[in-house]
Computed example of a mutant assay.
Amino acid sequence: MHKAKIILVTMLVVIAVVLVIIFMLPKKSIVTSIPSVENAYEPVPKFSEYKQVKEKKKAFFNYLAPAVKAQNDYIKLIRQEILGYQAKEASGERLSDYQIEELKWLTKEYRVETNQDKSDMYQELLRKIDIIPSELVLVQAANESAWGTSRFAQKGYNFFGLWCFKKGCGFVPSRRNEDASHEVAKFTDLSSAMYSYMRNLNRHPAYSDMRAIRYQLRSNQKPITANAMAGGLLKYSERGEDYVKELRQMIRINKELIAL
């Protein structure tokens, strides 16, 4: 009987210790936790092996679509958090230390100045942190990666031609000028690549026109469409207007396949 009591007490102590440890662990933030999809670390499919064009396109879209959705769902959650911060401060309440840290992370991640009026800061955050229509993401990925067959996509999950500027950060382009130092970024998984691409469109000065189009649509309570937002990507390619026309044509031609 005495032995049983000792075992019971020991078990209760262990449970108590575990509960204390769990309680003391830092809370996982939905803001700073970048979402990952189930196939994120799986090798990129060999799209060049498809003989039928339609089947290759379907496989390509089906592979990327879950990652696109995960990032857009994440962006929607972040927008709700930002609106919550804004409402809380507008009512005279102070943000919690945890919320302050999340807000700091967002302003740094999306390059938003914090020394401006609070309402302007929140407006800029909401202007930058917003969804990218899946149709636009998918056709741009197809355009930039030759339908997933480029070595950058196959070996580094880079479907968007994203650059990096630290030696060894990626692939050295074969046509790079002698005085250039950029590389084509290499990613460890699909989700981090998709996050980087969307963040790039949402924060880089070159795509402010795209964000202005989206902001105008949202302000007028109109649908945020791929066709409209493609018009803000003139600076994504040296081809400019021809590049935008090609994206819009791809959106139109592949509309039914993307919807499958």
Score class of each variant (00 low, 15 high):
R151P: 05
G84Q: 11
K166F: 06
D73S: 08
K245C: 06
K46Q: 14
E109M: 11
F160W: 04
V112D: 05
R94L: 15
H182W: 03
N115C: 10
I224L: 12
S237H: 07
K58P: 06
D189V: 00
I82S: 09
L103R: 08
A228G: 03
Y110L: 12
D117W: 07
S29M: 09
V139Q: 03
Y122C: 09
R94K: 12
I258D: 03
S208F: 10
A67N: 02
K222N: 11
W147A: 03
Q116G: 02
D242H: 10
P133K: 07
G92P: 00
S119V: 13
F165D: 11
E38D: 13
N143D: 14
R176T: 03
P45A: 07
E42C: 06
R214C: 01
Q154Y: 01
K235G: 04
R79S: 08
L106G: 07
A59D: 09
I253S: 13
F152D: 01
A87P: 09
P35C: 05
P45Q: 06
L234P: 09
Y195G: 04
S219C: 02
L95Y: 05
A90K: 13
M1Q: 13
R127Y: 13
K255D: 15
R252N: 14
G156A: 05
D117A: 12
V20F: 14
D117V: 08
H204Y: 01
C169I: 02
I15S: 15
V68H: 05
N254H: 11
G161W: 00
E55M: 10
G232A: 06
Y85V: 00
G232I: 00
Y110P: 10
T225G: 07
A226V: 02
I21M: 12
C164S: 08
A185I: 00
V13T: 14
I21E: 14
Y110F: 15
V184D: 08
A90N: 13
S150Q: 08
F159A: 04
K5P: 04
A65S: 15
I78S: 06
L136K: 04
S145Q: 10
L12M: 15
K166S: 15
K57E: 05
M1I: 09
M121D: 02
G170P: 10
A153H: 00
Y195I: 00
V53G: 07
Y195P: 07
Q86T: 06
A226W: 00
K88L: 15
S96I: 02
E49T: 14
K51N: 15
V68N: 11
E109K: 13
Y236T: 01
E81V: 12
Q116Y: 05
I15E: 12
N227Y: 15
P45K: 01
E178R: 10
R211S: 06
I78C: 08
V244A: 11
V139K: 00
I100H: 06
P45L: 04
Q154V: 06
Q140Y: 01
Q216S: 15
N72H: 11
K235I: 01
M11P: 04
G156S: 08
D97C: 02
V68S: 15
E256I: 13
Y63Q: 08
P43A: 13
K27C: 10
M229D: 03
A206T: 03
N72T: 01
E124I: 02
Y98G: 04
L19A: 14
Y243T: 03
L64H: 05
A193L: 06
F60D: 02
G232Q: 01
Y207K: 07
H204E: 07
V244F: 04
D130T: 01
I258R: 01
A16D: 11
